[in-house]
Design a protein around this nucleic acid. Structure first.
Lengths: 134, 134
DNA sequence: GTTGATCTTCACGTTAAGGTCAAATCCCGG
DNA sequence: CCGGGATTTGACCTTAACGTGAAGATCAAC
C-alpha cells in the first residue's frame, strides 16, 4: 500500500527551495534524484523532496555532488549490500563525521576572530564619531 | 623596532600547510598574500603565515577567495577608512556571522542524520554477521 | 663547475556546478 | 480546439581554483 501522497512539478520544487529548474535537472543527471515520469514530464514525490533538501544542505556544507550522492545512496538503502559494502559505508560516515568536527572547530575559531575584528571596528567607529562631534 | 622574526621560503610554507606552491602563488595573485622579495624570490614572514592559515580555514568553510580577501583586508586594517567603510565592514561581518550560524545548524542536522544512517548500517551488519554464523 | 633542488614567470588545461539560450512539446483554462 | 505558460532535451558558455608543464635563473653542495 504505497500511500503515494502529494506530487510536485519541477518548477514548484524549484520555488520551494529557491533553486532553478536547471539545478534540479542537473542533480538528476548526476544521479541525486530520479523522479517518475508522467509522459515526458517529471513528477516528484515527497521522497524526492527529502533528497533534494538533504542535497542542498550538503551543498551548504561544502560537500561535492558526488559525495552527496554517496551519502544519499546509503541513506535510502533498501538493498543493504554485502558486509564489505556496509563496512565501506561506515568508513565514509566516519570520514564525513571527522570533517564536520573540523568544520565546527573552524567555525568557532572564525567566530572568535570575527568578534575581535568587530570590536576593533566598533571602537574605531566610536572614536571617529567622537572626533566628529568636536 | 620591527623585530621581524623568522622568514619562510614558499616551499617551506607549502609543506607546513600541505598545499602546493602553485596555490600559494595563486593566493598572492588574488591579493590574499603579499610577501616581500629578496631579488625575485618570495620571502614570507609570520604575518603572511597567519594570513595563509586564516585563508585555508576560510576555504574549508566554503568561503570564496574573494570573500576571504575581504575579511583579511579588514583584519589587519591599519587604515580604518571612513565611517562609511567601517559600517560596511560591520555589515559584512554580520553577514558572515549569520552564515556561520546556518552552517552550525546544518552541521548539527547532518550529524543527526549520520547517526541514523550509521545505526541502520550497524544493525544490518549485525544481522548479516549473525546469519553468517548459522 | 656541474649537478640537482628550488625558485621564477608564462601559458594553457581541467573540473565542478550550474547559466543561458534555442527549439520543440506538453498541459490546462476558456 | 487553441493560445500561453511551464517543461523537455540539447548544446554551448562561464567562473573559481587551482594543475601541469615549459624554460630559464639561482644557489648550495660535492
Amino acid at each position: 500500500m504505497p500511500v503515494s501522497g502529494p506530487t510536485y512539478a519541477i518548477g514548484e520544487l524549484a520555488q520551494q527551495f529557491d533553486v532553478t529548474t536547471r539545478t534540479i535537472r542537473f542533480y538528476e543527471q548526476e544521479g541525486l534524484l530520479s523522479p517518475e515520469r508522467r509522459g515526458k514530464t517529471r513528477v516528484y514525490r515527497d521522497k524526492d523532496r527529502v533528497r533534494l533538501k538533504l542535497a542542498l544542505r550538503g551543498k551548504r556544507l561544502g560537500f561535492s555532488l558526488i559525495e552527496i550522492r554517496e551519502v544519499l545512496d546509503l541513506y535510502d538503502d533498501r538493498n543493504h549490500g554485502s558486509v564489505r559494502q556496509l563496512e565501506r559505508m561506515l568508513e565514509i560516515l566516519a570520514d564525513k563525521r571527522a570533517n564536520l568536527e573540523r568544520q565546527l572547530e573552524d567555525i568557532r575559531a572564525m567566530q572568535r576572530e570575527l568578534d575581535q575584528v568587530e570590536a576593533r571596528c566598533q571602537s574605531a567607529l566610536g572614536e571617529l564619531k567622537a572626533s566628529e562631534r568636536s
